[in-house]
């Protein structure tokens, strides 16, 4: 039985890429590019509306494990500058978290600094911030790998 608990957490991840801002931003903004590094490559987003108020929806199943649904609403977009979106995560149909992510892109001499600030609330003991932060660091590493090859 659910205890209806809510655990709030905030984490920040900063990463510098040796690529120009337009390229890093484009890896988030273009569904084909994003599918190369974000989520299940065999199961790209079914909905991808990259504009304020637009939605993104995708799902993926861990082999032998649960199915996750990721549902986004884009809240604010400034090209080559920032992306704010809220999202829900469901695991096997149960809502495990609601989050608000801000991604800021800044040009540096080397390329681009990307700062991700994520507010989260983790519901009913089904997820936690440490796990989400670790998962997000893996994603950002995958983004870096994609950018180096693209």
């Amino acid at each position: 039985m659910s205890d209806h608990s809510v655990a709030h957490g905030t984490f920040v991840i900063e990463k510098e890429f040796a690529h120009p801002v337009a390229k890093v931003f484009g890896a988030w903004a273009d569904p084909k590019k994003k599918s190369k590094w974000f989520g299940d490559p065999n199961n790209p987003a079914q909905v991808f509306e990259f504009k304020p108020g637009g939605r993104e929806s995708s799902s993926g199943t861990i082999p032998g494990g649960p199915t996750f649904n990721f549902d986004v609403t884009y809240q604010d977009i400034v090209p080559d500058n920032r992306i704010l979106y809220s999202y829900d995560m469901h695991m096997d149909g149960k809502k495990i978290s609601v989050s608000l992510a801000s991604i800021e892109f800044t040009a540096t001499p080397k390329g681009t600094k990307m700062k991700m600030t994520e507010y989260g609330l983790y519901l009913d003991g089904l997820d936690n911030m440490a796990q989400r932060k670790a998962g997000t660091i893996s994603l950002i590493d995958a983004l870096g790998g994609y950018l180096d090859k693209a």
């Binding site: 209806h4 709030h8 304020p52 609403t73 809240q75 608000l100 801000s102 609330l121």
Partner: peptide, 24 residues
């Protein structure tokens, strides 16, 4: 028990904030 919503505030056509609110 609880209500969770995200919201934008705009003054004129300028978006001044985006927030995530939890009411328990």
């Amino acid at each position: 028990r609880r209500i969770v919503f995200s919201y934008d505030m705009l003054i004129g056509d300028r978006r001044i904030s985006v927030s995530l609110t939890t009411i328990e």
